[in-house]
Design a protein around this nucleic acid. Structure first.
Lengths: 192, 192, 192, 192
DNA sequence: TATGAATGAGCCTTCATTCAT
DNA sequence: GATGAATGAAGGCTCATTCAT
């Protein structure tokens, strides 16, 4: 087994454990057992229990932004990109239920999410969304006077709340099915 | 001092303490000291430390929804109501910095916020927003095919993320100043 | 039970526990059990486990120096004082076997004894010994050229080593019985 | 490099590491790094961490007693031997600051020093001192009624305390310069 | 012989909660 | 009701030691 697989193993185990019991109700030894290592081994790769959560998020988020950037790069225009971004965001969460639980629910406590060490990855996602909006403005597809930063936060916040509600509501429907309607509201607003 | 003031005193102290140190870094004895009571006294009015957070949120949220319902009741149409709702939501957070910190940052951990005991008050807020949207549809101001539940979550999520970014970004601008632009995006979307 | 008795209770329990198992092999919970309190209670009165050892030593040492100063104050001359000091030093250790074990054996690890927080009490004992030597010099009983500081350390070191050997040698004889011979060597040296 | 050099390497590294951080604050891996070996290697030559300390002391002490015996063998009489012994004891500690720190400060915890495995070497040193005293008695240089065992402990304890005070007092003077005065006090006592 | 990644026992300390006063 | 001293469960983390390579 290559060394580099251990941290990955531990992070993946942590996602499952946190999804099941929540961060505060999970013991480091639970993660160790799930990962098939001794609890001391975790401390060879992670500084603290918190560090597991932070690095879990940063890794998943960095992967996600990289994948997403690639996935929309070749699309013809900003509208298509925005629609695809929304669809993939929701699909990803739907396809990864443990990760969805962790990201939408467990990770939200103040100092561990938007604040602090994870800020960089969040910023990268916001930048990706913002770039799509600006491309659309430049191409004349979006309003010339669009407040990009504000709209970025709104789009992210909208998707995020829809995802959170779906997770908390016990996933009673297909999340990805709401993607088109969501994109419509973003594009055209609620007004007639 | 009437007895009934004690719980209020404690909740208000908790808001200040949680805003300063975060929920998990605040001790019950900190809240007691801030409230000017002994820590045992807190347990005469609250079942557990968690209960303080839950009741803090429920109380503030219930007050808020009641106030908001009143505040938009007399407005002539759904567009005006929606604009006012957005403006008041942001103004309220701007005017209550400690509460904003607690609600936007500390309160977000899964099981204590949308889930569980607070769900009722959240639902009431969503219902209020949903009612405005439906009124707008009925009046022909909003799209006939508007997916109300989805749009409700999106509107809430959008405001919420804007507020959270503002709190985390150290409140570098006037939050209420973004209300009109935010409402515009909700009403008209990003597309031209 | 008066508050002020708790720390005393804990210190006395700690002397017994440390004497039995040694400092590093004693758990805080052992001390708590021996003292008849919960382990958390210890932390109401002591900052850390180390703090127990430090305050134990400082308290015993301060008591000891105060008692000794009193006990020799009225003696007619420095020789009598020196003899009494030696006799009491050895008798005290003989009469307090647990304390002797702790002071002569457990307490000696570097940073916890002569160094750091206990230095003040040690210094006071050295000052008391030094004062006797100076009184003897002034009275013409001791050598005019006596290097007081050096002789102080030698006298203390001599008594200390005799006591330590006795403790480690399982107390096979009466320690106090060596007092006179010890004082003779100090007073007259080994040479004829 | 011959194999037999490894244990020596490790002991010498341990002296430096213990002198810097103390025994309990030094990790086996620290010693390994200082010695330039892997930590597992240490266990090829030493049974436990404690064993390093014990063998360090036994080795240094055995070397020391052998050297000292030789160094005083040819001196004409017991007084000269005693003076030389004191002078060399102090000089050796002054010349080996790391060793002095370890022996005078770190090594003193009960079960690892006078007690247990090191007792044999301590006994040998005491025997050497005792032999000098007896030689002096036989030659009529020392008191006929000298309690040899007691005086041995006192001499050792006196030198030891002088050395310890010097180490703890940050070595503010030349330790070896006190040798003559120390020997004078031992030989002639403090009395006129 | 040498390595160093992996192990897992061990324990101090915190702090929510209780309850005698 | 109000107090605050006392409780004791709980778990993150360290590091001496092992062992597969």
């Amino acid at each position: 087994m290559r060394d580099s697989e251990k941290p990955q193993q531990i992070i993946d185990a942590a996602v499952r454990v946190f999804a099941r019991h929540g961060y505060y109700n999970s013991r480091v030894s639970d993660i160790a057992r799930e990962a098939g290592v001794a609890s001391g081994t975790i401390y060879l790769y992670f500084k603290t229990k918190d560090d597991i959560l932070v690095r879990l998020f940063r890794e998943k988020m960095a992967e996600w932004v990289a994948f997403l950037r690639e996935a929309i790069a070749d699309l013809p225009d900003a509208v298509a990109k925005l629609r695809r971004l929304v669809a993939l965001h929701l699909k990803m969460l739907e396809d990864n239920p443990d990760l969805a639980e962790v990201v939408q629910v467990e990770l939200r406590q103040g100092h561990k999410f938007f604040r602090g060490a994870s800020a960089h990855e969040i910023t990268a996602y916001f930048a990706l969304i913002g770039a799509v909006l600006e491309e659309g403005m430049a191409a004349g597809l979006f309003r010339r006077d669009l407040p990009v930063k504000l709209a970025t936060k709104m789009l992210f916040g909208g998707m995020d709340q829809v995802a959170t509600s779906w997770v908390l509501g016990k996933r009673r429907y297909r999340l990805a099915d709401t993607a088109d309607a969501l994109a419509d509201v973003v594009l055209n607003g609620v007004a007639r």
